[in-house]
């Protein structure tokens, strides 16, 4: 069985940056990902707020992250971790293809697109309902599409879809957007209309989407809107199954609780990136990954859990 100082689970910006810091610090490390490297970053049409890049598409940026990390560490893709078992001071990491032992674990399993959970959403997924504007925008050129949401992702999607030639409207359940001002300004300058205080209640069609029913939250009025495509960008839910199995403490919303050293409540287990909730930005994920790796390095050499209780600053969570 292969043994490592740290096994990093997840190859998005958090996991890959953790790997770079871990190996440079002197730890042996491996990155495992059930899918391919990149995380949700790779789906972003344009990233304009990551230091050093005035504008870059998500797939290019995630490819750069991967190439950089590969200078230091082996990244095993399409190797889902099925379980992690703690045996005294060592963790046994089981995957679909093998087993690894690790002194520490860095969880960077990220998050997945949240679904609306309304009638028709699952039925028409792939037949007009999409969670990836860059993947599917082209199929809806010169067609009517709705983007659902009010954050950076939704507004960025609306801008991207307008750019590829779709007739776009944004639907948002509130009266103002959460997206950063720069994105809002760009969207409004492109004359993308917004259906304010509105939520989708049903998606319908035949072999593909034909329309949606929208409820105005202020008036209660329900109206039918004929559309060809619906892009759902309402946020993400954490991939916290492994964390739960390890006994890691979660917040009420399912995100992993960490201290300022990226430590979880379980000694030797760290978490970073979208899995920890809060500000879900690439730079924050990368930063937490760095902190997690350096904490793992520190703790392997000087385990706080073998010292007197309370002797390590900041670990009370």
């Amino acid at each position: 069985m292969e043994s490592y100082d740290t096994v990093i689970i997840g190859a998005g910006p958090a996991g890959l940056n953790a790997a770079i810091y871990a190996v440079r610090a002197g730890l042996s490390a491996i990155v495992l990902d059930g899918k391919t490297a990149g995380g949700l970053v790779a789906e972003s049409p344009a990233i304009e707020n990551y230091l050093g890049f005035s504008s870059i598409d998500g797939m290019k940026l995630s490819a750069k992250f991967k190439t950089h990390a590969q200078h230091y560490v082996q990244i095993k893709e399409i190797e889902p971790v099925t379980d992690i078992i703690r045996k005294e001071d060592v963790f046994l990491v089981k995957t679909e293809r093998g087993e690894y032992s690790a002194k520490t674990i860095i969880l960077a399993t990220g998050s997945e697109h949240r679904h609306l959970g309304i009638p028709g959403e699952e039925e028409f997924s792939g037949r007009g309902v999409s969670y990836c504007s860059t993947c599917d925008g082209f199929f809806f050129r010169n067609k009517e599409v709705l983007v659902v949401g009010g954050g950076n992702t939704a507004v960025g999607d609306a801008i991207y879809l307008k750019g590829v030639g779709c007739n776009v409207r944004l639907v948002h359940r509130r009266g103002s957007l959460r997206a950063e001002k720069a994105l809002q300004d760009k969207m409004f300058s492109m004359d993308i209309p917004v259906m304010w205080d509105s939520e989708l209640v049903e998606i319908y069609g035949d072999s593909k989407v034909k329309g949606v029913r929208v409820r105005n939250k202020k008036t209660g009025e329900i109206s039918d809107v004929a559309v060809d495509g619906i892009f759902i960008s309402i946020g993400e839910d954490p991939n916290n199954d492994l964390a739960k199995n390890l006994g890691v403490k979660l917040a009420d919303d399912g995100y992993v609780i960490i201290d300022r050293f990226s430590r979880t409540n379980v000694p030797g287990v760290y978490a970073a990136g979208d899995l920890t909730g809060g500000v879900k930005q690439i730079i924050v994920a990368a930063s937490e990954g760095a902190v997690a790796a350096l904490s793992a390095y520190e703790d392997i050499n000087n385990p706080y859990w073998k010292k007197d209780e309370g002797s390590v600053e900041g670990f009370e969570i």
């Binding site: 391919t36 990149g38 790779a42 860059t134 993947c135």
Partner: peptide
């Protein structure tokens, strides 16, 4: 697949 599709890259090796 298409070149803008990140999830597609997960399918190729499978």
């Amino acid at each position: 697949w298409n070149t803008h599709c990140a999830p597609c890259r997960k399918v190729h090796p499978i």
